[in-house]
Design a protein around this nucleic acid. Structure first.
Lengths: 140, 140
DNA sequence: GTCCCTGCAAACGTTTTGCACACAG
DNA sequence: CTGTGTGCAAAACGTTTGCAGGGAC
């Protein structure tokens, strides 16, 4: 697939310096950033980026389907640039690190559907990452 | 299992009118309420309940393991009183209604564990409920 | 009587919005 | 040139906290 910035230009998206930097931050990250983290990284590259523009731009990207919005238990929204492949998430409940993983979807038995029209399935594997396991291991 | 209020008293929880009302609201609801919705329902029964007490009490109940805290994509925390049986959730993405369902857990292949220590699995079936499907059906 | 819980209001962190100016097209 | 994106600051939102008074045990 074409790079994110190219896809956006092809959709007639007005490309400003701020938007390009924000899109590049998202495209370059494999972790799932909160808006404020995107703001920090974007500002490091281009200081004349405002918080409002980061929020506005992220919301637009979500609306265009170029970004997935997720809610991490800390109450902040996180943004996932991986919209190409279906995937689930592996979350470290201690440090908040989140990785993409692939696993089979669970299925919902007919008698549990309650007449709902199924659209998608979200799976989060709650876990502790190696670093956090090591940090709490009984010190010798 | 004993009623929630009984379990709480047995743990030495100081039982005030406000706390009892909040616990009863949670016990009586099969939906997954946000703190403000709990506040409204509690105040309908007992007007002298403050928002702060609702928040404090919900956090205590979560800490005691009598309530599960979940984050619904609208950014508000929701509280699930069903701690007895393992279950997943069926969410209407239009109106936000959320039901408990039982389904098999998906499994995470070894080559996808990245060394993490698995603790639990959260599954949300994203869907549209019958009422919302009907609301958007092509009008004849 | 003691200590914990309560209400109130202010503080907090995140996200949204109103407005005049600036720049991409 | 025009229309849309921008920065700034203020507001909105859900939640937490500090404090003095009150009620459960």
């Amino acid at each position: 697939m074409e790079p994110l910035v190219v896809r956006l230009r092809n959709r007639g998206w007005r490309l400003t310096a701020q938007r390009r930097v924000i899109a590049e931050v998202m495209a370059g990250e494999h972790v799932h950033l909160a808006a404020d983290e995107v703001f920090d990284r974007a500002r490091a590259v281009l200081p004349e980026v405002s918080r409002a523009t980061v929020y506005n731009t992220l919301n637009e990207l979500v609306g265009m389907g170029e970004l997935l919005e997720m809610t991490h238990a800390d109450g902040r929204k996180r943004y996932d640039p991986n919209v190409e492949e279906r995937h689930h998430h592996l979350l470290c409940v201690d440090c908040g690190r989140m990785l993409d993983v692939t696993a089979d979807d669970p299925s919902l038995p007919d008698d549990q559907r309650h007449g709902f029209e199924l659209l998608g399935i979200e799976v989060t594997f709650r876990a502790r990452c190696p670093a956090c396991v090591r940090a709490t291991a009984t010190p010798s």
